[in-house]
Design a protein around this nucleic acid. Structure first.
Lengths: 149, 149
DNA sequence: CCGTATCCATTCCGATACTG
DNA sequence: CAGTATCGGAATGGATACGG
């Protein structure tokens, strides 16, 4: 596409999109946040072609969003784990999730709730803060896998 | 590319990306939030080809993120204004901005600060809330155009 | 199991020319 | 000013075949 690069743009949003603004990267990060670490695991979850998964993973590693690590089990392979930079995308994903929940689902087709781990209670909206104390960290929340009420 | 569609995915993030997950849409929304309304205005700010701007704007209108409105001045043309759905993307953009600010700028190349309109003070991080009261709305903040300290 | 390599279709992007 | 039309090139995406 010979896309214009945004990597040196003055705007942080443009720079961000340059690194993760394509169709698959954020979904890969989403699954990584959900515990996926192996190539085939990502492939199975996302259902995308292996060559493009390979390319995306490499790009994410190159940008320091994922990092390669020796497999946690005995296998000779490596695993893709999130760096701090990658972990921090959780907030972006949450914003995207809340927007989607609010505007992209019909009343009779609700998404799985996003809840606070400790309490199991659904999240409130993201809030903008003055430079003030924090409430809850991104790690404190999770998305329910199924409805078991 | 024959990309897989996410518009009926179970995951809100996937659905969101289906509507605004391309290279230009969020930047268009960014500029709309910043006051841009006219075709040429977007084109000038973004520096993208007119045909693709045209396609993106149409798509955003089709998705109910932008809406066409008779020009506010005398001209016979129309203007692109954000719907509530589009306005709500402000939070997503803020998350993206904060991530970019945190990880994509060198110490000697800081981005323009994002401040609270009323106080002029820089924003704190987005926070996750329990179902609790709100603090500051997305409309209360702005990005400085230049540094005049 | 974990990828890389190859092939082909699609579509995205940018530039330019053109209309009202 | 506000687009539409057309063009070529590049990157993306999916499928499959192949190798460690």
């Amino acid at each position: 596409m010979r896309r214009t690069r945004f990597d040196d743009a003055a705007c942080p949003i443009a720079r961000s999109l340059d690194q993760i603004g394509d169709w698959w990267s954020l979904l890969i990060v989403r699954d990584a946040l959900d515990g996926a670490r192996r190539f085939t695991e990502f492939q199975k979850r996302l259902g995308l072609a292996k060559n493009i998964l390979s390319a995306r993973l490499s790009k994410l590693v190159a940008h320091g969003i994922l990092r390669l690590e020796p497999a946690s089990d005995g296998s000779a392979y490596q695993e893709y784990v999130l760096t701090e930079k990658g972990e921090s995308l959780r907030l972006v994903l949450m914003a995207l999730r809340q927007w989607g929940e609010d505007f992209l689902f019909a009343p009779d087709d609700r998404p799985l709730p996003h809840v606070v781990k400790a309490s199991g209670k659904p999240l409130g909206p993201l809030e903008i803060t003055h430079p003030k104390p924090r409430k809850l960290g991104p790690r404190d929340v999770e998305v329910l896998k199924e409805l078991d009420d």
